[in-house]
Each structure stands twice: as C-alpha cells, then as structure tokens.
Design a protein around this nucleic acid. Structure first.
Lengths: 198, 198, 198, 198
DNA sequence: AATGAATGAGCCTTCATTCAT
DNA sequence: AATGAATGAAGGCTCATTCAT
C-alpha cells in the first residue's frame, strides 16, 4: 500500500499557502506555482488535489469563514444577555486571529473576487446574512424598531475598519478598532434603547 | 486657432473606459485591448498616450479622486458652521455621482490595488489624510478630545457602506446609506459634544 | 499606417504549415509552435489569426477540400458524356496534386479527427455527399437501378486506395491506383450497363 | 494448483479497455487513466503490466489482428475451392465481430498511428502481406496474370468500406458492405477469369 | 499485487508591449 | 495621429511515468 492519507495534509497546506501568498502580494494575482511552492509541493500536485486554481481560492475562502464561525460560536457560548452577545460578535470580528494581516488581506480580496465568482459570492452572502441575522436577533430586544439600521451600522463599521486596516498595513492604525463599533453600539442603546437607564 | 491636439480627448476617453470596464467585470482583470476598444481606439494608441497599463489605472484613480474633491469643495462653499460642514462631507461621499456602480466598483478595486502599486497607495493616503484632517478640523470644535475617534468612525462607516454596496449590487441595499453615518455623527455629538443642547 | 494586408499571407502560410507538419509527423499530434515555426512566425501570431489550434485544423481541412473541388470542376468542364465524367471524377481523385504525401496524410488524419470535431465531421459529410451525388447522377444513365451501389463501390475504392497509399509511404505502391477504380467502373458498365455493347 | 497470476487477466482487461476507449472517443487521445479506470485498476498498475502507454496500443493492435486471423483460419477450414476461399476472406473481413464499432474505430486509428510507431507499422505490414498473399494465391488460379491488381482491388474495397463505416457511424451505411467486394470479385472473374462459364 | 503520491515536461492560450508604416 | 503586425514571457492545466509502501 502506498503512502496514505496525504490529502488532508496537502489540502490544508495549500489553503494556508493561498492565504499567505495573497497576503504577501496583496492581490489574487498569485500563480499556482507560487502557492504550491510555498506549500512545499509541485503545482501539478496542487491541481491533483484541487482541480483548479479557482477551487483553491474558494476552499481558502471557505476555510477563513469556517474558522470565523467556529470562533464566534465558542465566544458566544454561555452568554445569554443580548447586549453582551452583540459585544461578543463585534469583538470576535476584531480578535487577534481575525486581524492577522494575511487573513484580512485575503478577506478583502475575496470581497472583490466575489464579483467574478458565483461561488464566492454565495459564500459571502451566507456570511453576511448569518452575521446580520445574529445582530438583528439580539438588537430587536435592545433597540426595538431600529434593529435593522443599527445592525447595518455595526456591519458597515466592521467592514470599514477591516478595509482601512488592510490599507494602512501594520503601522499607524488605531490599536483597538473594535472601540468604534462598541461606541456606536452603546450610543445607539442610549439613543434608541428601551431601557434608557442602561 | 490651431486644431486642438487629440491628447486630452483620448486621455479622458481612456480614463472613462478604464472605470467602465472595471465596473463591468468587477475586477481589474481587464485587458488593455478591452479598455481601448471601449474608448474607440487601438490598444497601441492607448499605450502611446499612457505608456503602460499601470499608468492608465493610476490616471483613472486620480480622476475619481479629483472629481470627488471638486465636488466636496463645491458643496462646502459658503457653509461655515462645523456641524453642517461635517454633514456635507458625509453626504457628498454618498452623492449620486459617487454611488455610480462603476465608480464604487473601481474605487474598491483601487483600494486592493494599492497593495501592489506604490503610486496608488500614495494617492489613497493623500485622500484619506485630506478627508480625515477635514473631519478632524471640524470635529475638534464639536467633540473636543474625541475628534480622532469620531473621524475614524465616520470614515470607517463610509468605506464600509461603499464595500457593502459594491458587494450587494444594485438591489437590496439601504436606500440612504448616509443615514448611518449621520446617525453616528449626531449620537456622537450628543454623547461627547461640548454643547449638549445641540 | 502600419504594414497592411498580412492576414491572407499569414493565413495561407499557416494552412500550408499545418498540412506539412501533419504530413511530416503522420499525426495530428503537432504543436502550434511547430506549425507556427514552419510558417515563419510566432505561435502567438498564429493564434492572433486563427484564434485556436482547432480553427487551424478546420481551415486546413477546408482548404484541401476547396482545392479538390476546384480541380474537379475544372476537369469536368466541357465534358458531357456520362462515362467520361465518371472517369474524370475518379482520375481527379488520384491526380498528382491530390496524391501529394502530405495531402493524403492530412486527409486521412482529418477523417479520424472528424470523430472529435463536429465541424470537420460536417465538412466531410458535405464532401462525401457531393461526390456521391455527382457519381450517382452520372451512373443513373449508365447503370440504372444500380447507381447507388456502384457509386458506393467507387467511393470505397478511392478511400481504400488513399489509406493504403498513406500507409505504405512513397515506396512500393501501385503506380496507377486509379486503374482499380476505373476497372471497377468498366466492369460494372459491362455487367449492369444499359448498353452492353459498350 | 497455485492460484493463477493476475497478469493474463489484467492484460486482457486492459487491452479490451484500450479498444473500448478508442472507440468511445474516436481518437487515440485517450489517457492511461481512462483506460485503467475502465479496466478496473489504477494507472500505475497498467504501467506495471505494460511498461508504457505505447505498449498498450501495440498490444491492442496485435490482439485485434490475432483475433482476425484466428477467425479467418476457422472460416477457411475445410474449404478447398479457390473462389469459395476468396469469398470467405472477404466475408470474414465484414463479419459481425469485425464490424463492431469499437473495433473498426480502433482499427482505423491504428492505421494512422502506424505512421508514428514502427512497431505498429510492422504489424500492419504483416497483416497486409498475409491477406494479399492469401488473396493472390487463390486468385492466381482464378484470374491468372491479373491476381495482383484484383487482390489490391479487393483489399482497397475492404479498407475503404471500413473507413466509410467508421465515418458515418452506426446509421445510414449499406447493410451489406461485403456485397461491393463480392461484386467486384465476381465481375473480375467474369472479365479476367480462366473459366468464363463460371 | 496494487495504488496513492508525486513530478517534470510540455502545450495551448493570453496579453502587455513594441515597431514599422 | 494612428494602427495592424508581431512577439516574449508567462500561466493554468494535463499527463505519462516513477516511487514508496
């Protein structure tokens, strides 16, 4: 019998390599050879496992999203209060792992790529819907009647903070980007909240 | 008077074509031939005027920014009150012309492209600095000590709203994306403002 | 204005090159680079003029067929007697130009290629139909009621003689392959002919 | 008795698969993987048994020819009359098994392939020589002095009928292609035959 | 005996760019 | 001013073949 079980090893090595290479170059103009080389294999093998460059991109996108959702679920576990849950959603978006430069760069690139790839477009839509429905669900209790616009505001701040972070590189950004979103949340609670005493 | 040179006519035709093509495909994966064809000339002539594909992109970026700044200046003209000036900055970002799908798509793509092109990166930095210094200047009077974070917040909301708009296409977005930014501004004034009576 | 009118020159150079290369290698396993090199240009230019390797093949096939039909028409000109016309059809098939090794080799390869390419398949069908309807038209007067089978026989002999010629190469083949077909015709006339006195 | 080696089983499975795959695609552009998959094994194993793709083709060619010769010998058994033996040679060429679409398609492809492979070329030459020497041997008694050309004629008709059959696919061909060859034989006998009373 | 793993070589095709006219 | 002509360079993908187990 041959060497067995390489598929998962190779696959994740390639997915990591896709993200790293996109991060390094800042674009999706990376060649399969670059990706494969970084993952320690020939480009032919990369095609053997993924079939096409496009599939590698999609797999990488899916990987990032899956990791994100897992983190969200973990962080939400045990938290029951609506306000706390929204704060958790915000903070998870700006957690250490999600702010890795490579990850944010890949994320932004996938946003653009979505306009070309139906599959990535669908993935992003799923992510967006899930995040917003999460937000709205909690906000309905906190700012009844205003949950849609506040959810949209939070989501916009998250996306905006991301893109600005990618743009500026490591240096010079605000240390705690989540503060903007949290501020926005708290001000909204004060302004529209059912319990103004909060 | 001599017949005017073709240069300005050709140049702006090409710049428009760059933006249109990027908008159409959603990516910067457009060929010089496509651009030139849309501008009604041969790709060789496009190179004659711009020297390289990269220069066309840079020129297009510069064009969008210049148009934006001109609009800002016009809209600010005659307005002296700080709050009104901030609101104008926000609303101009979401004006009809700046929300043209082609323009927003190109804008987003240039954001990504900045990671590859030093020149575009510099252009964006200039734009960002100018916008934020404008915002900060007015906010210093309105929310003293908090002008940096509020300016960053407004800027993030603008970028975030843009990216989300590009992503969703024409359909399904909030009709007045500026409302989020305006809301954020007004809540900030109430919360941090010198004059709470405002 | 640039150098003009190269298209027809390049096109026919490429078509000739396709036939020569297929003839040389005996297969359609020829690369675009080989073809282009023989035609004295880069493979990129070959694609510029034909768009794809497949189109080059189709164009070459069409070229051979067109040349053949022109020759048939010329040779038939002025001949009115049915028997003489059939003999002309046979002899033209075995004319000097049509027996060029490269041509026959390409012809045979296109026969095989027809099973992959719908376009070539259609071309061949047209050729076959035209040849057989020509044959049948004349034979109807000569061997009434038997024109179908005799036409099929002549056509089979032509194809068979071709394939055998390709197979054996230059050496060792019968000097006058048309004699078999002519013999077959004459025997058919004697056997089935209306005018047995012939 | 020990368990028999797999070698003969695997080999013939592969040979069948080669013929089937060529028949299916109409070309020799079939991959080793396709062949091996159809034969129910890995492509590595196919190489283990045959060493190279080329050897598989050669073996398949040899297989078809061997089967054909065996059938000829069986059908000739007990027949002593020259005319009857020639007719048997013709009819065997058009027997049910030899007209299988896959077989004829493979046959035609091997004809073309002979121009690349010396080995296949030699195989075909052997086949041709054997068939023609068989034909000539019998025809010498039937049409003395004309045996060469009549043999060539019969062979050409056989090859021609094959190629036309492949080209047209299942539909639309004459139901009894052997009739053309038989007709040709009988007319030759009448024309050139020693015994015109026949 | 058997196969998943792995690769080097090669091919088609695209494209930015240059050149001659 | 303008463009058809032309190419070098590169990239995605395929595939026969080999190897380790």
């Amino acid at each position: 019998m041959p060497k067995l079980g390489m598929q998962p090893i190779r696959s994740s090595a390639l997915i990591e390599a896709v993200i790293t290479e996109i991060g390094k170059s800042g674009t999706m103009d990376v060649t399969v050879s670059q990706i494969a080389r970084r993952a320690g294999m020939s480009s032919a093998l990369a095609h053997h496992y993924f079939g096409s460059k496009n599939s590698m991109f999609v797999a990488a996108m899916r990987h990032i999203m899956t990791k994100f959702h897992r983190e969200v679920r973990q962080n939400l576990a045990g938290k029951t209060e609506a306000k706390e849950r929204v704060e958790t959603l915000i903070c998870t978006s700006f957690s250490e792992t999600n702010l890795q430069p490579d990850t944010t760069s890949a994320w932004l690139n996938f946003y653009v790529f979505a306009q070309k790839s139906g599959e990535v477009s669908r993935l992003l839509r799923v992510y967006h819907n899930r995040l917003e429905s999460n937000l709205r669900h909690e906000l309905r209790q906190l700012v009844p009647g205003k949950e849609a616009i506040v959810a949209e505001g939070i989501a916009a701040i998250i996306d905006g903070a991301y893109i600005r972070r990618v743009l500026r590189g490591k240096t010079d950004f605000l240390d705690n980007p989540e503060n903007i979103a949290l501020d926005y949340l708290h001000m909204s609670l004060k302004t529209y909240g059912r319990d103004t005493a909060h």
